[in-house]
Amino acid sequence: MELPQVKDVEITQVDNFSQVHIFYEEATGEAKLNANELISSTNWIFHIDRRNNLEKVAKHFSELQEKKRNPRNPHSNPDAHVYFSLADIPHKQLGFIDVTNLTFFTYDPKEELKYGNTPIFVYPDGFRLKENGGEKTPWDKFGTYKNVYYIYIFSGKMTFQQFIDIYWTELHQNDGGIISRIYILNEK
């Protein structure tokens, strides 16, 4: 398992947890889920191989998030959190980011007006303000306005490492906040 690598994390320890593994199958390129010992009442740590395709990871993550959030689950614990594990390279330690409120959605261009007024189409090498038009703007030119509601539409083809690089480093650390809704653009 090759965890996503980052330069810094805020959380370095999680207690009372169950583990979820999403392995990368080298022969097929598929994301393989192993959640056999998952206990609903504990914190969940997702160990996700960084080579996995974001679209495939989002599918597994969404299915398990739905199970965790189900209010009819008799073992539900509203105080339990969900984390992604990361390799904090400079400190040579395992780190975590809290993704309890993160939800992945499939992007549907026919529903775009429901999403918000400023879509940002996210790619590893930059972003666009329109899906099929306009130039990609590099991440070092990215900036947001405080009173504008952005929706982030990530390319489903990017790797999980690329997603973490953008979600954690570019958007969270540079923009100062956690984004809870991510739309996945399923590209053929």
Rank of each mutant, 00 (worst) to 15 (best):
M1V: 10
Q5T: 13
V6L: 07
K7M: 09
D8F: 14
D8Y: 13
S18E: 08
F23A: 06
Y24T: 00
E25W: 01
E25D: 14
N34P: 00
N43G: 07
W44M: 11
W44E: 07
F46R: 07
H47A: 13
N52A: 04
L54E: 05
L54K: 01
A58K: 02
K59A: 12
S62G: 02
S62L: 00
S62T: 09
K68Y: 10
R69M: 13
P71L: 11
Y83V: 02
F84Q: 08
L86H: 05
A87T: 09
Q93M: 13
N101R: 14
T106N: 06
E112P: 01
N117E: 15
N117I: 14
T118V: 14
P119N: 08
I120L: 15
Y123L: 08
L129M: 08
L129Q: 07
E131H: 12
N132L: 14
G133E: 14
G133A: 15
K136T: 03
P138G: 05
P138D: 05
P138C: 04
P138Q: 01
D140P: 00
D140K: 13
D140Q: 10
G143N: 13
G143A: 15
T144C: 05
Y145T: 11
Y145F: 10
V148W: 01
Y149R: 13
I153L: 07
S155F: 09
G156F: 06
M158L: 12
T159R: 06
Q161D: 07
Q162M: 04
I164N: 01
I164L: 05
I166A: 02
Y167R: 07
W168G: 00
W168H: 11
E170Q: 13
E170W: 03
H172V: 05
N174V: 03
N174R: 13
G176K: 03
I179C: 03
S180K: 15
R181Y: 08
N186T: 11
E187Y: 05
